[in-house]
């Protein structure tokens, strides 16, 4: 029988993928690193009690969404990001110009709206799953999605997001 991976082995294998998710959830490198390190530290403490190590990544991903949601609550009322968390970061992203423009607008969304889009559209989670992960109602997920799309449409009429 294959031995269970240690926490370090797990992280060495999954760090990059988890970092990418944290980046999309937070919209910035510093915030992503801080969020992921926090969730990993908590996971490290509980590593011995995670009985199915094969489910550890799902556990961390749930933790990312949950912890991000908690941080937003602690910060109080969300406000749209008029000033991007990291100026000029886009120079490092080699993506199509129209996609980069859309990502810039997604980054400007309030954190919960952005996370809702990531969970719903990228991870293809249901409204109920998204609500559970973010600790909100399904009604809130619907509302956040609706308002996020409305903002994107308003910001990018030339993209024909309809």
């Amino acid at each position: 029988m294959r031995p269970e991976p240690s926490f370090d082995e797990f992280m060495a294998a999954r760090w990059a993928a988890l970092y990418r998710t944290a980046y999309l959830l937070t919209g910035g490198h510093h915030q992503a690193e801080d969020l992921l390190q926090d969730v990993l530290a908590r996971t490290c403490l509980r590593w011995g009690s995670i009985r199915d190590k094969g489910a550890a990544e799902a556990y961390v991903r749930r933790g990312l969404a949950h912890q991000a949601s908690r941080q937003w609550r602690r910060r109080g009322r969300e406000t749209p990001t008029e000033v991007l968390p990291e100026e000029g970061h886009d120079g490092g992203l080699e993506v199509r110009a129209d996609h980069l423009a859309l990502w810039e607008q997604i980054r400007r969304l309030p954190p919960r709206m952005r996370a809702t889009l990531v969970l719903r559209y990228l991870e293809d989670r249901s409204e109920q799953e998204t609500a559970d992960l973010l600790g909100v109602s399904t009604g809130s997920v619907k509302s956040q999605t609706h308002h996020a799309l409305a903002r994107l449409r308003a910001a990018m009429p030339e993209m024909e997001l309809s």
Binding site: A16, Y19, H29, L93, L102, I106, Y121
Partner: peptide, 19 residues
């Protein structure tokens, strides 16, 4: 709309520099 957002997020996900 959904496809465009998904494609964008996928592309950014792949392109982001990982420390």
């Amino acid at each position: 709309e959904k496809t465009r957002i998904r494609t964008t997020l996928h592309e950014v996900e792949e392109a982001v520099a990982v420390p």
